[in-house]
Design a protein around this nucleic acid. Structure first.
Lengths: 172, 172
DNA sequence: CGAACTGCTTGCGACTTGGAAGCAGTTGCG
DNA sequence: CGCAACTGCTTCCAAGTCGCAAGCAGTTCG
């Protein structure tokens, strides 16, 4: 009997899984950043340290949100993949992003993705989740060349950066 | 310049606000349990201790998710109220509950609310949020006697408890 | 052959967590 | 009127977690 839980409340159990300051950021970087390797994840916007990252990857694998496999191109590289359980967090990410954008002091370039996710609504989320399934659960790397949701979000992010740099050049 | 933040990413900022194991449970108890007083919140399903509760209430007030006022009926009682910022978490709570229910070992009685929230969808969430606004932001306590969303959820919870008790009596 | 890179691990000080007990004041009840 | 119960916290302290810095064995690349 699993009495290592504080209660059987779904919200509580969810928090027991990712109720900390890092777990969801790792998932975020895998979903929105397309990161699959340890050292990629180490270069997070927020600067996670390697021992914490190792620990979180381990527990995320234990709860079934991630899987790990060998990279055929490099004997030392590991590839982390999202499971359906983690891909199912996309709508929560979208809501979290929308909420943060509304109530917290976000930066423009880092919230453009949240804005587009909010605008796109459930239809966009579903498409994104399908792409993630192909990428993480499909047979190997199913690249479908055309513009994926992640690529569109990434482009919007870079456009904001470019516009801000330009504005700074003109104004400053 | 507020450089006490790790990054301007909306998901990160959200996690900085409630990315711990207790903050959202307090909000949950206020939303779904109708709890408004310190000692009510202390009797949480998960057994929060009083120093942690005091600390979290303080930080939740600092970030603007809660307000505190005097209870006119008791000089020592404080009444905690949700702000719009906290009420706006209802859809996230619903998603969290749905996700937890799908992937984690929830108990039947504590997940019936999540089930009903999921079934009710955005329309039900909006109604619930309106009721919370009346209760927490309105002029005093706006009780509208008829069956509120919270009362319906609570009744469903009690029905499950009663059914399980009966089943145990018959089977055992 | 050496520099750079791979996924981690270790050491350690600082911070956080949380159980238990307590506190000054208030209220309800007999 | 007197006392038990209750009010929102606070303090103490041990145990655990966090996170920077450094390092490590192995691999790959030029």
């Amino acid at each position: 009997m699993p009495e290592d839980h504080r209660s059987g409340c779904p919200i509580n159990l969810s928090l027991e899984v990712f109720g900390d300051k890092w777990s969801l950021l790792i998932i975020r970087d895998m979903i929105f950043g397309g990161k699959r390797h340890f050292r990629e994840l180490l270069r997070s916007e927020e600067g996670i340290s390697s021992n914490i990252l190792a620990d979180r990857l381990k527990t995320l694998m234990e709860v079934g949100m991630l899987t790990k496999s060998d990279d055929p191109t490099h004997k030392q590289k590991a590839i982390y993949s999202l499971t359906e359980m983690a891909i199912a967090l996309v709508p929560i990410m979208a809501h979290l992003g929308a909420w943060g954008r509304r109530y917290l002091p976000v930066s423009e370039e880092l919230s453009i993705r949240a804005e587009l996710m909010e605008e796109g609504g459930p239809a966009l989320w579903e498409r994104f989740m399908d792409e993630l399934r192909a990428e993480h659960l499909g047979a190997g790397f199913t690249e479908h060349g055309e513009s994926s949701v992640r690529e569109r979000l990434q482009k919007a992010y870079e456009d904001v950066l470019a516009r801000k740099a330009k504005g700074r050049k003109v104004a400053g």
